[in-house]
């Protein structure tokens, strides 16, 4: 079986000379949900921007057996749904429905088929009611749902979420985890929110200084206090991965 997502020897240097990715190796199997953990500045978001070719470094990115290159950039972007950290960056159209339609319309879908795509994508995150509303009048949780729907409308093979819980209240976080669990799609979830990672992802990968430094079942990774501490991560006070509901 081909993996849903592979990155090999990925290197990227920002124009100011800073090494953001320093030989990243990452494989995500089809149907899995994997948490990508790491301190600020570890290169997590930079990696996400490489997965659909917005940033291009050296090394290779393979999505569902298709290696990213200039010719198949459009197909790769269809296969990888990216949900950005700030939903305000993702929702730029006048209404939620138009925003959700933006991606599939770029793929050349129109008419009834496009309407159906929009309904379906909003339905999957239980946000049908948001369709006619302008994004700047939505709550944080609603914005997040709408942003995820914009990515789902492309019918991606892999959903990459960058800090999906930032700005959500505890209930919003729980509802988001519930929604994401119902989606039948491979997921890479970038987060600092370790309990969220534990609740959602069976596997976790830790990135630091531009490379993958550890990976394993989420419970084991989060139980390894030394490992967490070495990479500026820690469970919230009073939590232990082993004893928390997973």
């Amino acid at each position: 079986m081909t993996a849903a997502l592979e990155a090999h020897a990925l290197e990227f240097r920002y124009p100011d000379g800073r090494m953001a990715l320093d030989g990243v190796e990452l494989v995500v199997d089809r149907g899995h949900r994997v948490a990508l953990l790491g301190p600020n500045g570890a290169g997590k978001t930079t990696l996400a921007l490489h997965l659909n070719g917005i940033l291009r470094g050296s090394g290779s990115v393979v999505i569902g057996g298709l290696e990213l290159n200039d010719e198949n950039l459009a197909e790769i972007r269809r296969r990888v749904g990216l949900v950005f950290q700030d939903a305000n960056d993702q929702l730029f159209m006048p209404t939620v429905a138009e925003d959700v339609a933006f991606g599939p319309a770029n793929l050349g879908i129109d008419g009834d088929l496009l309407d159906r795509r929009v309904e379906e994508a909003l339905g999957r995150v239980d946000a049908m009611a948001l369709a006619p509303r302008p994004p700047h009048h939505l709550s944080g949780g609603e914005k997040r749902s709408a942003a995820i729907a914009t990515a789902l409308a492309m019918e991606p093979q892999v959903l990459v979420l960058d800090e999906p819980t930032s700005g959500l209240d505890p209930q919003g976080r729980r509802e988001l985890a519930e929604t994401l669990r119902t989606l039948d799609v491979t997921m890479l979830v970038i987060t600092h929110d370790l309990p969220f990672a534990l609740a959602l992802c069976e596997k976790s990968v830790i990135m630091d200084d531009g490379r993958v430094v550890a990976e394993g079942p989420t419970k084991e990774v989060l139980d390894n206090e030394n490992l967490l501490r070495r990479h500026r991560l820690e469970m919230p006070f009073g939590f232990r991965a082993g004893s928390s509901p997973g």
Binding site: N52, I54, A74, R77, V80, G81, D89, N106, A151
Partner: peptide, 13 residues
């Protein structure tokens, strides 16, 4: 820039 990235990510040409 971030909005433009988000547009590219959804196939903007």
């Amino acid at each position: 820039e971030r909005v433009y990235d988000a547009m590219l990510a959804r196939g903007y040409t």
